[in-house]
Design a protein around this nucleic acid. Structure first.
Lengths: 317, 317
DNA sequence: TTCAAGACTGCAAACAGTTGCACTAAACCT
DNA sequence: AGGTTTAGTGCAACTGTTTGCAGTCTTGAA
């Protein structure tokens, strides 16, 4: 049925080990034999069975990527970039979704451990010690979370948040609301610390909030009541929801309130007004994580973020 | 290093075959032995190696999903649903992106063939004969394309398009523009045929266009010149681009022109005006495709679409 | 001419599991 | 009591590939 290395060996009159070598160590086999084997293999449609190969070599040439929610617009560009980086080096990529459940995370890591050479974990929610335990089973790199001992890829939201608040300050906003994310989120803390350090603006924190449109929508009244004229939202979805909520309260953006989001997801570019936001280098992060994994280097990288100014910010009235 | 079936066998005083059976055929082993093996395995942290298992059984318990572009908002909900369906039955999912290149498609199918029990191909662009050839190597189910002999999951865009045009007609639009997609697209043809069948409206086709915002933006002038007051766009991105383009020409939606999109992607819900659109059951399609694959049934399914009326359509002036 | 080195290639033992077959006891029938 | 079934377990071959070792054949040098 399926054509194996033995079929190729038989058909080309050499031993299986020679066939094996023409694929995994071509320089060790005579040029003539090599081309003969290669053409026979081509004719027969032979492709080495990676699973079998993995058995002896211990390398599967597979990688895994675990995210909280595939359908969250933040992740697809990251997944795409990771896939492309993996593909370039002839790796295949498992993708998995934890549905925001930390338990699923651990389960998935375990399940993948024998089948991949490494994993990329995006913003993992598991405890430090759980992660340390898992690190013994399979190498991984973590995106968007600090974890000593593991390779990490960070996106410098802090810097981005500061840029955003400075931008608002520069426009003349003296009172800025921070519509924060879920309690205990590493990113949320990072944003807050950075935002607080900008001189000349009074920061009022509103939250915690769900990291969704609804979260933003629900925060609208509190934003209005805060007296802030500028807002930094936990992410673009929150920002979009907030803009809609403010609209329902009769406040328009950017005329009455300026809003800046974080992430630079596609819907932010498409919604009206076009969202001013902190662009996260998600594609770069995905690509880099995969490269680190394949090269087996343990490093901590911090990727730069930048501010994308569009139509949701302006000078206060 | 890594704990194998032999370690478990030794530690629990039975033969490897018994350990093997306690995992893959528990009813064949004595209850007492079974629990003993199980606890030992747990202590040692043993997990069966799926790749090794695949070697003898021929089943990998892996599935593959190939899409044109992971970052296109149309796909993530489908991927997520496919993943969740796979996970429920203890399958792992490879995800791959062809970057819109048919050649990559064939290459990926080949590369995956030995490593998966089946593949899901979303809107494959390869030729019929290429697909037929590939079908010999690995079972697959096709989404959004008719292919005799293969299991297919269709979403009935035709019906959706008809609903959309009827909706416009019902509002009083007598002349409707169809801003079509790329030449040769199955979907595009499907939409057109259906739209033409609605009585009482004059249909003008504008296209082909790139299936992106830019494609829609670029078509704005031709839409204005067509004299149509209602528009059905190839997809939501095109619709959003078109709305922006019309805006730049001084035409507002829905006051001057009504626009309906297709797909019901997230940005359509978030942009202003909120887009009236034909909802595609992408999640259902992903889930179903995986189920068909796992159950190895060859069926042709057509999923219903429905019209979601929001703010981008109204009666003409 | 003889030897050593080098280039290829074959042999066979892994890798981590599964599974048909054979074997042993115990239980069940007449 | 003797034969038959049945449950449980072990044995060993097999899956497709890699790889250390050993063997053969050239080739070049002394």
């Amino acid at each position: 049925m399926t054509v194996t290395i033995r079929d190729v060996a038989r058909a080309s009159g050499v031993h299986v080990s020679t066939v094996s070598r023409t694929f995994s160590a071509p320089h060790m086999v005579n040029a003539a034999t090599r081309t003969r084997v290669l053409t026979v293999a081509e004719e027969l449609g032979y492709r080495p069975n990676r699973a079998a190969r993995a058995l002896t070599t211990g390398r599967t040439h597979n990688l895994g990527l675990i995210v909280a929610d595939i359908a969250n617009p933040f992740f697809p560009p990251l997944i795409k970039a990771a896939h492309s980086a993996a593909r370039q080096r002839d790796y295949h990529l498992f993708v998995a979704d934890t549905d925001e459940e930390p338990a699923a995370e651990e389960e998935l890591v375990q399940a993948f451990s024998k089948q991949v050479d490494g994993l990329v974990l995006c913003s993992p929610r598991s405890s430090n010690k759980a992660l340390e335990r898992l690190a013994e089973r399979v190498p991984f790199v973590v995106i968007n979370r600090r974890l000593r001992g593991a390779a990490t890829v960070l996106m410098d939201v802090g810097h981005g948040a500061r840029l955003a608040v400075e931008h608002l300050a520069g426009l003349g906003h003296a009172r800025v609301a921070l519509v924060s994310g879920p309690a205990g989120s590493w990113t949320s803390a990072e944003i807050r610390t950075a935002a607080e350090q900008v001189p000349g603006v009074e920061l009022v924190v509103i939250g915690p909030n769900a990291p969704t449109e609804r979260g933003g929508f629900a925060a609208a009244a509190r934003v209005r009541d805060s007296g802030a004229t500028g807002v930094l939202a936990y992410n673009d979805l929150v920002a979009i929801g907030l803009i809609e909520g403010l609209g329902d309260l009769g406040l328009s953006v950017p005329e009455d309130v300026s809003v800046v989001g974080i992430d630079d997801i596609v819907p932010g570019r498409l919604s009206r007004p076009k969202l001013t936001t902190v662009a996260m280098p998600t594609a770069a992060a995905g690509r880099l994580a995969v490269d680190l994994l394949i090269q087996e280097v343990t490093a901590t990288t911090s990727l730069e973020t930048r501010l994308v100014i569009r139509d949701s910010t302006a000078a206060p009235r």
